[in-house]
Amino acid sequence: MAETVDGIAFFLLAFASIGGAVMMLSTRNVVHAAFWLLEVMLATAGLYLLLDAEFLALVQALVYAGAVSVLVLFTIMLTLRRREDAVRPFEPGWGALALAALFGGAMLLAISRAQLPIGAMPASVPTTADFGRVLFTQWAVPFEIASLVLLVALVGAVWWSGGDRR
């Protein structure tokens, strides 16, 4: 029974994320596209939840659905002067479509033929506390470097948006 419920949930969420991505690409209004992006990210968070990855789902909802989508909306708000500018002509790039289809087909073929190692699953689902312990011990170095990357990005943004002239 649980298998079927998971299957239905997976089908719904997968349809929501792929359908949302298609809608995001095909809509003519950039604001609508931003909201479709938000929908895709939430559906992906649902997929993570289905895989028992609560923390990842929470981060996905907070960072991607929360912060990144808002950032996109802010960018649209700050760069568009008039309401009509939000509507862009629909220009289907057939070359790009063909390339994307080719890439997707090649990856699908490669993944279906690959022999992926079967990872050893832990006896119990790792908790967020376990995750934090690993992050701040085993992965402390990349974590600290990431903080420096953020600092550089912050200083760079301030430099470019700084109004004072020398």
Binding site: W139, P142, I145, L148, V149, V152, V155, G156, W159, W160
Partner: peptide, 26 residues
């Protein structure tokens, strides 16, 4: 010698370059 560390180090190595290349902001 770890893919995650390597990637984030590469980002730290190139991120400042974007700003340096656009240093003449006017």
């Amino acid at each position: 010698q770890d893919l995650a560390t390597l990637f984030i180090a590469i980002e730290l190595g190139t991120m400042p370059a974007y700003v340096m290349m656009g240093y003449e902001r006017s």
